[in-house]
Design a protein around this nucleic acid. Structure first.
Lengths: 143, 143
DNA sequence: GGGTATATTGAAAGTCACTTTCAACTAGCG
DNA sequence: CGCTAGTTGAAAGTGACTTTCAATATACCC
């Protein structure tokens, strides 16, 4: 899985004439090794611990490349930061976000997707993608 | 409807010890007179035409007050701008957004809301609110 | 391997969309 | 009216990216 995404990115890079660099490899490994929904800043800080030389701009640019290549996806939860999550071909999921502790749970629901398509069709829309986020308290924070 | 929201805001202002000012009245009227999903900037520019003296900061602060009072709601469509839409007590709707022309259609769907609650319950979450946005091409842009 | 044309990098400067500050104004009350 | 606390507008400040640019690294070609 991890190797597969690595390969997808490398192929994308090759096709675009991009070079393989030490920094990109480090960031790619780091990104693929965590399955949290990291913001650029979080990934940057995490990277700095092992690799002090890497700059914020590089992390930012590289994450963007990941998104373009299809192995990552940008997400916004309204906290003002851009986060990146792993993304696989044709896969999609939505989020449950705990507004107290920030916990994020992913879920998929075909029935909802189907209803969405029906609604869109009713208005003549052709849906390209959607965003569904449920905000509230997770089991732990409800206590 | 418009008068009702005006009243709600005035009561909210009174309860908070806020003063009634010329600027706030103008912004309130302007906001209530349009039913588009205006960004702060759009409302500001629209206002400036009739009332050149009003500053951006005032529009920004006033819109925030509207949201606090419950007559408006902030929305984010990922274009980097904060928009405000009218909001009525206990009412909720979601959006269809055309990614080409920016058209926005509002819709409500109880079946989806119900499914959302079920999903949340399954993860032990207590949902406070949610956001559902469908992005694609509107009937006109599909041609 | 050395020489080159390109792509990358990191630091710093620049953007954008708010947010806050502050001195000069009002409202509203007595 | 005279005060006191809330408001305003211009400008400075923030936060989170984005872009610029001179210095480096890579990937090729010989």
């Amino acid at each position: 899985m991890k190797q597969e995404k690595k390969k997808i990115f490398q192929e994308y890079a090759a096709a675009r004439g991009l070079k393989s660099t030490r920094q990109r490899d480090i960031i790619l490994d780091s990104f693929l090794s965590t399955d949290r929904h990291l913001s650029i800043e979080e990934l940057y800080l995490q990277l700095r611990e092992k690799h002090p030389g890497i700059g914020y701009a590089t992390v930012y640019r590289t994450l963007k490349l990941f998104a373009e290549s299809g192995i990552a996806r940008e997400i916004h939860f309204g906290d003002g930061q851009t986060r990146y999550e792993h993304q696989a071909e044709g896969e999609h999921h939505d989020h449950l976000v705990c507004t107290r502790c920030g916990a994020i749970v992913e879920f998929e629901n075909e029935a909802i997707e189907k209803l969405q398509d029906e609604i869109a069709a009713g208005y003549g829309f052709l849906i390209k993608n959607h965003k569904l986020e449920l905000y509230g308290l997770c089991a732990k924070c409800r206590k």
